[in-house]
């Protein structure tokens, strides 16, 4: 028999999981890039990897305090955004897409290669960097919560920090997008030549947007590694595509869209995976093995991306009139 309680409880845990928060941050950054500015950043995985590695390496190799490690990660992603932006932001939109996806792969391969294994840990990645963050935890040791939401002090600490960051950055994004800065940014999305003809330095605004959204992704990357270890295989191109799926699901030019999109995405994915895995176990799907059941989720995400883009391009929260789609 299928253990429905377990499936639902696992899915419910995704509601507030740090992974959900991390993806929400990355998607919010992508909303700034893609939804508001019209920049096709396909390298969000690279920004997340910089957060993860910047944080872990600073602590493990250089013994930095937590705040120092966070600054290193942010600094690295600012530099990364500059390197990506300088050659491409003057060119057509698709060049940025190709360069960002290539640059994210460069980062991943560099983190994976054996050449720098003593710093990056190559394919097996890094661990043992959680001490500093755990020491900042004001929650006394113990187990708290109810039902599926019962966690120890460290797990609660990650969730509190992660979701506070989501709330703060969502608020910041909301504020800047209704300011004159946001007006210029949205104008660039509509037609950058028109904005240029009005005396705005479009190049500089695009760069600011690329950096800002990238830093969101970097912070997401840091939250992402706090409950697990840093593994380079996590930062493949499909990570970026998952973040896009979340963004499109919620609505590209919205503030709540990326956040709610992330929650829906992970709850549904967990529910679906849990259900299929147990259905296979129970012999309901005789043509499928456990391994194949695990692959179904990717097929599903792929199909979902296609269907959303074709049939509801504005996402769940988007206003069809406001954002039909970026050209």
């Amino acid at each position: 028999m299928i253990d429905w309680i377990q499936i639902f409880s696992n899915a419910a845990q995704e509601l507030i999981s740090p992974t959900t928060a991390a993806y929400a941050l990355a998607a919010l950054g992508l909303a700034i890039h893609f939804g508001y500015t019209g920049l096709l950043n396909f390298g969000q995985a690279g920004f997340m990897a910089l957060g993860a590695y910047g944080y872990a390496i600073s602590i493990l190799s250089f013994g930095f305090p937590v705040w120092g490690a966070v600054l290193v990660g942010i600094g690295a992603s600012v530099v990364f955004a500059l390197i990506l932006g300088i050659p491409t932001l003057r060119l057509r939109a698709d060049y940025l897409a190709i360069v960002t996806i290539a640059a994210a792969e460069i980062l991943r391969l560099t983190f994976t290669t054996n050449t720098f294994a003593d710093i990056t840990g190559s394919a097996s990645g890094l661990q043992g960097y959680k001490g500093g963050f755990a020491d900042l935890n004001p929650i006394p040791t113990g187990s708290y919560g109810f039902g599926p939401f019962t966690y120890n002090a460290y797990d609660w600490w990650i969730r509190i920090v992660g979701w506070s960051l989501v709330v703060i950055l969502a608020l910041v994004t909301w504020l800047i997008m209704r300011s004159p800065w946001g007006r210029v940014i949205k104008g660039i999305r509509e037609d950058e030549d028109a904005v240029r003809a009005l005396g705005k330095n479009v190049y500089s605004y695009k760069m600011q947007s690329l950096i800002l959204g990238g830093v969101y992704g970097t912070l997401g990357g840091m939250i992402f590694i706090l409950p697990r270890s840093v593994v380079p295989a996590n930062y493949q191109t499909s990570l970026t595509f998952f973040v896009y799926a979340i963004l499109l699901l919620g609505g590209a030019a919205t503030i709540l869209g990326p956040v709610i999109g992330s929650v829906i995405f992970w709850v549904l994915l967990s529910f679906f995976s849990g259900f299929v895995a147990r259905a296979v176990e129970a012999g309901w799907l005789p043509f499928m093995s456990q391994v194949q059941a695990g692959q179904l989720r990717f097929i599903l995400v792929g199909i979902a991306i296609m269907l959303i883009v074709i049939f509801r391009p504005q996402g769940i929260f988007g206003n069809k009139k406001e954002l039909a789609f970026v050209k």
Partner: peptide, 13 residues
């Protein structure tokens, strides 16, 4: 300040 042959009103503003 210039305008364009094909209008560049920012449609979704």
């Amino acid at each position: 300040i210039r305008t364009f042959q094909l209008t560049k009103s920012l449609a979704l503003l």
